[in-house]
Simulated assay, not measured.
Amino acid sequence: MKTIILLFLFAQKCFAFDLPRTGCKTDLTIDKDHYNVTEIYNTGDAEPTDAHFDTKGNLFFVVFGRNFNGYYYDIKVIKPNSTTAQNIPGLPERESYSVAVDKKESKVYFGTSKGIYTYNYESQDATLISKPDIKLNSLLVDKDGNTYITSSPEGHEQLYLLKGNEKIHFKGFDALEEVAVDDKNNFYYIREEKFFVLKSNLSHAVFIGNVSYEGLGQITFHREYVFVASETLSYIHENDTGPMKLVQGVPANVTAMAFDRSGNFVLGTKGKILKYKANDKECYQRKN
Rank of each mutant, 00 (worst) to 15 (best):
G164R: 08
L159A: 11
F227Y: 15
F195I: 03
V226L: 04
K171Q: 14
E192C: 00
L198S: 01
E166C: 00
E224P: 10
G172Y: 07
S234H: 02
V211I: 11
V226T: 06
I208V: 11
G164F: 09
T232L: 04
D182T: 00
E193Y: 02
E231C: 10
F187T: 08
V179E: 07
N210R: 15
V228T: 08
F196H: 08
I219Y: 01
K163V: 14
K167L: 12
F221R: 02
I208T: 09
K194C: 04
L162K: 13
I236T: 02
Y189V: 02
A205W: 09
A180Y: 01
L202R: 15
A180T: 00
Y235C: 05
K194G: 02
N210A: 15
L233V: 10
E193R: 09
E224M: 09
S200R: 07
N210L: 15
H237G: 07
A229R: 04
E231W: 09
V228S: 05
S212A: 05
F207I: 01
V179W: 03
V228C: 04
N186P: 07
N185K: 05
K171L: 10
Q158D: 13
S234R: 14
L161E: 15
L162H: 02
H204D: 06
E231Y: 06
N165C: 11
V228Y: 01
N239C: 01
N201K: 13
L198K: 11
E214D: 15
V226A: 01
V197W: 03
H204L: 12
K163I: 14
S234M: 08
S212F: 05
L162P: 09
G164D: 11
A205P: 14
Y189K: 01
V206K: 15
L159P: 04
D174V: 07
L176Q: 02
T220V: 06
A180P: 01
F170V: 02
G209C: 09
E224L: 06
A175L: 11
F173V: 00
F227Q: 07
E178D: 12
Y225M: 15
A175N: 14
Y160K: 06
N186R: 06
A229D: 00
S234A: 12
R223D: 15
E238T: 10
G164Y: 12
N186C: 09
F173G: 04
T220D: 15
K199W: 02
V211F: 04
I236V: 07
N210S: 14
G209Y: 07
A229V: 00
L176F: 12
Y235S: 09
V228K: 02
F207G: 05
I208S: 00
E224K: 13
N210Q: 14
L202K: 15
E192H: 12
H169V: 08
S212W: 10
Y213E: 11
N165E: 14
E177M: 03
V179M: 00
R223Y: 13
E238G: 09
F170R: 13
K184F: 15
